[in-house]
């Protein structure tokens, strides 16, 4: 088993699936040359330009053509170069991909995967930093995955491609080359909708996803080293459908819930997690359900100083853990 970066794991998953099933093909801007993050590096050489297809620079057509190709028997993986540029395709994703199966009473389906790098922390400014998961998690008929680790990325991308429904696959761009992790060479999948308890603990449940998982784990280690507070960290991995039972079971054990996400706090996905805990685990709580997220400013300013001011980081998360633990 080799240690790999997340972008290598993404590429491996695409390559494996294209070898396994000739219906799988990728399309998008610059994918033929490997893409701006190199996630499709080498695919054109192995599979040809029909199965690793450069498209015109037009996001609605990329997703719309993927929908059409899926209707006609293929399993398209559309790449949108940055999540910030996916908005022109919103209509195709929300009006078409998400609703086709329901509106036709189950007659038609749309097995597409839409991959896109999202998230801040790389000095990307307001147009290379956005978190978009809440927009799509709100829409019935879509599955939404947020990955920030090599192992999860490979297993979940394979599941996404094999899923008979439209899947939004959001890859945290700062995690692409942030660290390496052991990733099996052989085929494996991770089920969509199942969270991972990445750290066990008894005093508090910290629910998070994406890059904030890594920051939360760091923060939990620091606080436990300082004062012994034992934090359970759950990485949702999939925000729609999300693993409510895993979260509720943990909160019933710990009695406290801290939710950490990178997106703007208002209407972010963590609000849904908070509401569910408040409703379904109320009698187990002995502290306020608390959120740490970015304030409501466009994510994210370019300057390092400004960006650091806005985004959650291990220090801010550690402070949040201490405050909630004091209840």
């Amino acid at each position: 088993m080799a240690e790999k970066t997340m972008v290598e794991a993404v590429r491996d998953a695409l390559c494996d699936e294209m070898r396994r099933d000739e219906r799988v093909f990728v399309l998008g801007e610059d994918v033929g040359g490997g893409g701006v993050f190199r996630a499709t590096d080498g695919l054109r050489d192995e599979f040809g330009e029909d199965r690793c297809m450069d498209t015109p620079l037009a996001e609605a057509a990329i997703v719309g053509a993927a929908i059409g190709a899926s209707i006609n028997g293929l399993l398209p993986v559309a790449e949108i170069q940055f999540a910030d540029f996916i908005h022109p395709a919103f209509d195709q994703i929300v009006s078409e991909a998400a609703r086709l199966h329901y509106r036709s009473n189950g007659a038609w389906s749309c097995p597409i995967t839409v991959r896109t790098p999202y998230g801040a922390g790389i000095h990307g400014g307001p147009y290379h930093s956005q978190s978009i998961e809440a927009f799509y998690a709100h829409v019935p008929g879509l599955k939404v995955i947020c990955v920030a680790s090599p192992y999860d990325a490979k297993g979940l991308l394979k599941s996404a491609i094999r899923d008979p429904n439209p899947v939004m696959f959001l890859e945290h761009k700062k995690a692409y080359r942030l660290f390496r992790e052991e990733v099996p060479d052989e085929d494996y999948t991770i089920p969509i909708g199942v969270a991972a308890t990445k750290r066990e603990g008894n005093d508090m449940t910290l629910v998070t996803y994406g890059l904030m998982t890594r920051y939360s784990l760091e923060a939990a280690d620091v606080v436990e080293g300082d004062d012994g507070t034992s934090v359970e960290v759950i990485d949702l991995r999939t925000v729609s459908p999300w693993d409510k039972e895993c979260v509720l079971e943990s909160v019933r054990k710990t009695g406290k819930a801290l939710i950490v996400y990178e997106d703007n706090i208002s209407g972010g996905f963590g609000a849904e997690v908070a509401a569910t805990i408040a409703q379904d685990a109320f009698e187990f709580l002995d502290g306020p359900v608390t959120r740490i997220a970015s304030p409501d400013v466009p994510l994210a300013p370019y300057s390092s100083v400004l960006e650091e001011q806005i985004l959650p980081n291990p220090e801010k998360i550690a402070d949040g853990i201490r405050k909630l633990a004091a209840f």
């Binding site: 093909f25 029909d50 199965r51 609605a60 057509a61 997703v63 719309g64 053509a65 993927a66 929908i67 059409g68 190709a69 899926s70 209707i71 006609n72 028997g73 293929l74 398209p76 209509d91 195709q92 009006s95 078409e96 609703r99 509106r103």
Partner: peptide
């Protein structure tokens, strides 16, 4: 669907699949 023109790229994708297949 009802938003106009959303079906047009689907025809293109279907034809793309026909070509690939």
């Amino acid at each position: 669907s009802a938003p106009v023109a959303t079906q047009v790229p689907h025809a293109v994708g279907i034809a793309l699949a026909s070509k690939l297949r």
